[in-house]
Structures are given as C-alpha cells and as structure tokens.
Amino acid sequence: MLFRELKTQYSLDEFTTSKKHVVEILLYAALLSLLVSRDLLDLVTEQADDELVFPPERWAATFRSHAQLILHELGEHLGYSPPPLLERLIDDAQKIHQQRPILQERLATATQPKTRA
C-alpha cells in the first residue's frame, strides 16, 4: 500500500532517469511529503468527529491540492517572511542567466536573414 501511494500520488513511476542522485532526491522528497501528510492526517483525525473516515488515497490527493497553502501557513507560524512579491519578481528577472539570451531573443535572431560580409 505504501509503495502504491508513492507511485500514484507522487508519480515516481513516470520519471525516466538513471542518474542515482536524481532518483534519491525524488525518493526523499516523496517520503518527506508522505511523512508530513500522514502526520497532518493524524492531527485532522484527532480533531474530526469520530464517525468521519479519511481514505488514504483521498487524503493524499487532498493534501497535495492544499500543499501550497499548508506551506504558507507553516511559514507564517514559524515567522518566515518572504520578500515582497514585486521585489522578488524584479530581482529574479534581472538575474536569470544574463549571459544567455531568452528564447524570444534567440528565435528573433534565428529567423532574421543572414547578411553576407
């Protein structure tokens, strides 16, 4: 059941790589997510009415769909304050591989007629 959940919920069977470090990172990320999901399920089960049932696969899908919100709430609880979004967008847009042209620039250059010297 555990491996089935890892396979279906984290799509571990869809990665085609033979690089050991990539496989290890994917496994660790999936296992960490699974542990957090199960701990949160225990907390929800404690707080919910006794007659409520949380099927594991449905819970996994629910957890995955709310993961971003969970991270945001956890960050607030821990006092993490990310920089303002606009500032981050401006900074990141200036840093992205400045020595490498973006796809639109490469396409425009590639489609221009060649001039003869």
Rank of each mutant, 00 (worst) to 15 (best):
Leu35Asp: 15
Thr111Gln: 13
Ala48Thr: 04
Met1Glu: 01
His77Gly: 07
Gln47Met: 11
Lys95Tyr: 01
Leu86His: 08
Ala60Phe: 01
Leu27Pro: 00
Tyr10Trp: 10
Ser18Ala: 00
Leu89Ile: 11
Val36Ala: 15
Leu35Arg: 15
Gln104Ser: 13
Gln99Glu: 15
Glu105Val: 14
Glu14Gly: 04
Lys7Ser: 11
Leu52Phe: 10
Gln98Asp: 01
Leu85Tyr: 06
Ala110Pro: 05
Arg64Asp: 03
Pro84Glu: 14
Lys19His: 00
Thr109Lys: 15
Leu103Ser: 11
Leu12Lys: 04
Glu51Ile: 09
Val22Gln: 05
Pro55Ile: 00
Leu12Val: 04
Pro83Ile: 12
Ser18Val: 06
Ser33Glu: 13
Tyr28Trp: 07
Tyr80Asn: 15
Leu35Gln: 14
Gly79Trp: 08
Val44Ile: 11
Arg58Val: 03
Leu6His: 00
Gln68Leu: 08
Pro113Gln: 05
Asp13His: 09
Gln104Arg: 14
Pro101Asp: 12
Arg38Gly: 07
Ala29Trp: 04
Phe15Cys: 00
Ser11Gln: 09
Thr45Ala: 10
Leu89Cys: 04
Ser11Leu: 13
Arg64Gln: 12
Ala48Tyr: 04
Glu14Asp: 13
Leu86Val: 12
Glu5Val: 13
Thr111Ala: 07
Asp49Ser: 15
His72Tyr: 14
Arg106Leu: 15
Ala61Ile: 00
Ser65Thr: 02
Leu74Phe: 15
Ser18Asn: 09
Thr62Ser: 00
Leu103Pro: 01
Lys20Gln: 11
Tyr80Ser: 11
Leu86Thr: 12
Asp39Tyr: 10
His21Ser: 13
Val23Leu: 13
Phe15Ser: 09
Leu40Gly: 03
Val23Lys: 10
Phe54Tyr: 07
Leu40Glu: 02
Ala117Pro: 07
